[in-house]
Simulated assay, not measured.
Amino acid sequence: MAAREHRRRGHERFITFIDAIVAIAITLLVLPLVELTAQIDDYDSVGALLRENQAEVWAFLLSFVVIARLWVVQHDSVRHVAVQDGRVMRLLLLWALTIVFLPFPTALVAAAADDGVTKLLYIGTMVLSTTCLTLVEVVLVRHPELTDGDDEADPVYGAANVAMLLLALVITLAVPATSYFPLLLLLAADPAARTWHRLRGGDSRRRASTD
C-alpha cells in the first residue's frame, strides 16, 4: 500500500508539472502581441495597428484554441490514472513537447499559410500530439490496474482523430487550393468511431469530454 501511495503522489506531481508546462506555453502566446504595443507610435490608431497585424492576432487565437482543446483531451485521458507509470509519463512528456512547439507552426500559418512545410509542421504537430494521447488510452486499456477503477479508456476515438488529421494533411498537401479546410474532417471523427464500435458489435466505452 505504501508503494502504491508513493506512486500515486508521484503521478499527481507529474500531472501538476505537465499542467504547468501547458499554462506557461499558452501564456507565452500573447508575447508577440504585447511586443506590438511598442510600435503604436507608427500607426494612426490602435485600430490601425490591429488591422495591420491581424494575422498575428488570429495566430494567437488559433494557438490558444488548439492548445486548450488538446489540454482538455489530455485531462480526460488521464483523469482516472491513479499511480505513476513510466509509459504514461514518457507519452505525456512527448505530448508536452508538441504543446510547447505548436505556437511556432501556428505563427507560420499567419506568415506563410500556403507553404507546404508550414502545413506539414502545423497539422503534423497535431497528429503527433493526438497520437500520444491515443497511446495513453491504449496503455490504460491494457493495464487497468493503473487507474482508480472508474476509467473507461477508449483509444478508438483518438485513433479516429489521428486518421482524420492524416487524411486532412494528405489532402491539403495534394490539393493546396483546399488550404486548411480539410481539417473540418475532424467533425467526422466521432461518427466514424461510433460506426466502428457498431460494426464491432459493441458500444463505445467513453466519449471525449470535449464533445
Rank of each mutant, 00 (worst) to 15 (best):
I99Q: 08
V83T: 06
R9G: 03
L128D: 14
H75F: 04
L102P: 00
G202A: 13
L184W: 13
L62R: 00
A110P: 04
R194A: 08
Q39W: 07
A168D: 10
A2Y: 10
A192M: 15
V34Q: 08
S63D: 02
D41H: 13
V109A: 12
A59G: 08
A153E: 06
Q74K: 12
Y43F: 05
L121T: 07
L29T: 10
V109C: 08
T130F: 09
V138H: 07
P155C: 15
I40S: 08
T210K: 13
T37I: 07
P182F: 13
T210I: 13
H11V: 02
A111I: 12
R87M: 11
D41W: 13
L128H: 13
L61V: 08
D211A: 13
D85V: 01
R205W: 00
A168V: 00
V156A: 09
V72N: 01
V141I: 08
D42T: 00
A68H: 00
R207G: 06
W196H: 03
Y157V: 14
A38L: 12
T134G: 11
V30Y: 09
D154L: 11
D150R: 12
V81N: 03
D76I: 09
Y122T: 00
V138E: 10
S63M: 01
G149A: 06
R13Y: 15
A38H: 08
A55C: 12
N53R: 01
E5V: 04
L102W: 06
S179V: 15
E5I: 07
L120Q: 09
D203N: 13
F64T: 00
